[in-house]
Structure formats: structure tokens, C-alpha cells
């Protein structure tokens, strides 16, 4: 474990030379970037380009083959790839959030919506039932879910509500960073618009730091300050979102941008 002094001048996240191989197959390779506080980075590219692999490596959900993920946590500037399991669990439970593409993976379908939100609070030591319920209600309101549904099972929620519940369940511990894997994928456009609106408000009001993996360039433009374009497991182009989408330089990025259908 590498533990340096906590330093406000350090970025929130520094990914250095990160690689992940599944046997001989490359997931992602030679990834380097930094994320500042309050910044939203979008990772775009077609299916199989390594976006989700990269995100899962950063989240500590996949072991890396090479490289480091330094995270400016309350425990110092820690390489999450080399930290011990106990500390990694603590950090994942309270300081990072992960919203999955498939809400079945991100929620417990057999416990209530309030229970899903309260679980992270309880894992961090909160025990007062009334207090947990009050906080859960607040977060349901924030993500625009009717608080009357607090005792309902997430399995009775629509896809868009489940995604918003996942976001609430992640944000409840005030994480330093939130990682999102295709959060709008599979939702119809009006539901998608609501989710994007909720996310935009949260980014603005909470100064959220976020890494957003998406293949939807319109979503990426709306939410991200900067974009990284991935192809075949590597980053091929990066820059401010408008630079990438309005002035793409690389052949692959030009292909991606020119393939968008405009209604």
C-alpha cells in the first residue's frame, strides 16, 4: 500500500499506466488520466472498447494487471490497486459510489427502497432507525421518487426509478467520487431525460466528481466537462467535451461523431 500525505493540490484521482488483461485478451491498456474535484469525465467508445473494464478497475471491482489508481481519500493519497482489502472495503462503502448499467446488480431487489438507501448508512455505523428513514426520505425526494414508495421493493419500480434509486443509494454517504456505467442505457428517451436532469442538478448542487461511461455522445456532452475516447482498450483521443465532439481529430472519433443520428 502506498500512503502519501493528504494534499489538497493533488487530483481526486490519478490513473497511471493502468492495464487489464483477461488471460491474453486485452481489456484496457496504458490508461493515464487525472480527475479533479467537481469534475465530470465521460468515457465514450463503442461496445467492447474497454470502457466498463476501465471503470470496474477504478472502482476496485476488478483486479488490474498493471498500473495504479491513486485516490485522494480521507485516508490519504492511496493506490487502490495496492491497498489492503479491509481499507479498500471501507473506501468503497463510503467514499466511492458505483452505479451499474443493470440496476439488478446495483440494488437489492428483496429489500425496500428505503432499506437500499439505508444499507450504506448502516454499513458506516449509523443505527438510529428514525434518522436513517429521514435521510432515506430526503434522498428519495432528491432523485424525484415519491416518498410514499419508501417501503416498496425496487422490483416494483420502473427502470428509470431503479436507476434513480441506485444513485440515491450511492450518494447517501456523500462519496468523493461516483462512477457510472451506462446509467441511461436501456431507458426510453423521456425517462432518460429525467435521469439526465436529476444528474445535472446533482452535479451542479453537490459539485459531484464523476466518471461516466456511456456510448451515448449526447449524454456525454450534457454531463461531462472532458471526454476520453476509447478504442480497442486504449484511449485514442481526449479533450474538453466540445473539442472532442465539435472538432474531433482522430479517425475513430470522427467516425463516432459522424454516426450520430439527429432527429
Amino acid at each position: 500500500m502506498t500512503l502519501l500525505q493528504e494534499d489538497k493540490t493533488l487530483p481526486l484521482l490519478r490513473v497511471m499506466n493502468l492495464s487489464k488483461f483477461y488471460g491474453k485478451t486485452m481489456g484496457c491498456h496504458g490508461i493515464n488520466f487525472e480527475l479533479g474535484k467537481g469534475e465530470v469525465i465521460g468515457i465514450v467508445g463503442e461496445s467492447g472498447s474497454g470502457k466498463s473494464t476501465l471503470l470496474k478497475c477504478i472502482a476496485g471491482r476488478l483486479s488490474t494487471t498493471n498500473g495504479s489508481v491513486f485516490f485522494n481519500s480521507s485516508y490519504g493519497f492511496i493506490d487502490l490497486c495496492r491497498t489492503d482489502e479491509v481499507l479498500l472495503r471501507k473506501i468503497i462503502r463510503s467514499e466511492t459510489g458505483f452505479v451499474t448499467q443493470n440496476s439488478v446488480e446495483g440494488l437489492r431487489m428483496t429489500i425496500s427502497a428505503g432499506g437500499n438507501i439505508g444499507e450504506r448508512l448502516m454499513a458506516n455505523g449509523m443505527r438510529h432507525y428514525g434518522q436513517i428513514r429521514k435521510i432515506a426520505r430526503h434522498w428519495l425526494e432528491t432523485v424525484e421518487i415519491d416518498t410514499k414508495r419508501i417501503d416498496d421493493l425496487p422490483s416494483t419500480f420502473s427502470g428509470g426509478m431503479q436507476q434513480r434509486l441506485q444513485i440515491a443509494a450511492n450518494l447517501v454517504t456523500d462519496p468523493r467520487i461516483i462512477l457510472m456505467d451506462e446509467p441511461t442505457s436501456g431507458l426510453d428517451v423521456s425517462v432518460q431525460a429525467r435521469l439526465i436532469d436529476v444528474l445535472r442538478k446533482l452535479v451542479a448542487s453537490l459539485s459531484l466528481s464523476m466518471i461516466l461511461v456511456t456510448h451515448d455522445l449526447a449524454v456525454a456532452r450534457l454531463l461531462s466537462h472532458r471526454l476520453y475516447v476509447m478504442k480497442d482498450g486504449r484511449i485514442v483521443e481526449s479533450g474538453l467535451s466540445d473539442q472532442i465532439l465539435d472538432d474531433p481529430r482522430e479517425p475513430y472519433t470522427q467516425l463516432l461523431v459522424s454516426s450520430i443520428l439527429k432527429p
Partner: peptide, 9 residues
């Protein structure tokens, strides 16, 4: 204009 705004590189 877009270069001044750094929207174009």
C-alpha cells in the same frame, strides 16, 4: 470564435 472559446483546438 470557437478557437477563442477553446471549443476548437
Amino acid at each position: 470564435l470557437r478557437m477563442i472559446y477553446a471549443g476548437y483546438r
